[in-house]
């Protein structure tokens, strides 16, 4: 379980996230909607533990342990993984080196090949990570690395952005694998938190809980498909107006 309590996050001296509360139980996938600049990515970065995203108030606990003060790598080793929206290029570090690092000794060259096959990235293993990758290739590479890492909590920052229609189905398939969507609900352990601006990914990955985030706070909680319908119909402005001032229903 991931439990976020009264969380406020600042970048440099500016508080971006205010008093956020959110709980994801084992096996659940939640979706975070919101306009650009709402603080969605900041929330994900803070959960992952990047030092630039400073927690000024509140706490994060994962699997029953307070992780508020743990470093990025400690959180990763506890089972938190993240798909970056715009990961950096690391020259000289091959894609296969990254997959091998994610495996942490749990597999070999064959495992890497199988994962690459699955993500349709066979020709990318020898290439420098993210160097000259298209939008869709970046996303598939991120998911391939996560499939090697097998986190219990997966944070996905706009997994569908920059991905064409042909690729989005494959992205959805990889996400479903990662989030154990093919297992019966009772047996699922893996949790997911997905940021989506457009909501397209919901056509491929099922989620039961959605949030709308605006100005660094969570404005409402509900069924993500219903929310998406409202957002599509009325836009974020109306959506936020409607829910503004309402307390989160979900704690």
């Amino acid at each position: 379980m991931l439990k976020i309590k009264d969380l406020s996050v600042a970048v440099e001296d500016k508080v971006i996230i205010h008093d956020v509360n959110l709980t994801i139980k084992n096996g659940e996938t939640h979706v975070l909607f919101g306009p650009n600049g709402a603080g969605k990515s900041t929330l994900l970065m803070a959960i992952m533990g990047f030092p630039k995203y400073r927690i000024t108030k509140g706490s994060i606990s994962f699997k029953g342990k307070d992780i508020t003060n743990l470093s990025v790598d400690e959180r990763a080793r506890m089972g938190i993984g993240m798909s970056f929206q715009r990961p950096p290029v690391v020259r000289g570090v091959k894609t296969q080196d990254m997959v091998a690092a994610c495996l942490q000794g749990r597999g070999d060259g064959d495992t890497i090949s199988q994962l690459a096959e699955k993500a349709d990235l066979n020709d990318f293993l020898e290439r420098d990570i993210n160097y000259g990758f298209s939008g869709g290739e970046v996303k598939r590479s991120e998911l391939m690395q996560l499939l090697a890492q097998r986190p219990e909590l997966t944070l996905l920052d706009e997994p569908e952005s920059g991905v064409d229609l042909v690729n989005i189905a494959l992205i959805g398939e990889l996400m479903n694998d990662l989030l154990e969507k093919n297992c019966p609900i009772q047996q699922r352990k893996c949790m997911g938190l997905i940021i989506t601006h457009t909501g397209h990914i919901l056509d491929y990955v099922n989620a039961r809980t959605g949030y709308v985030m605006c100005d660094g706070t969570i404005g409402c909680v509900g069924d993500p498909h219903e929310m998406l319908a409202t957002i599509r119909e009325k836009g974020y402005e109306e959506c936020i107006k409607c829910y503004l001032g309402r307390l989160p229903l979900y704690e």
Binding site: P88, V93, A101, Q104
Partner: peptide, 23 residues
Amino acid sequence: EVEYLMARGLTREEATATIVRGF
């Protein structure tokens, strides 16, 4: 770049060494 590798579970030292090796 260091933090990207750390998010995959590598310690700061391991991440730095991987980047130097790549360089």
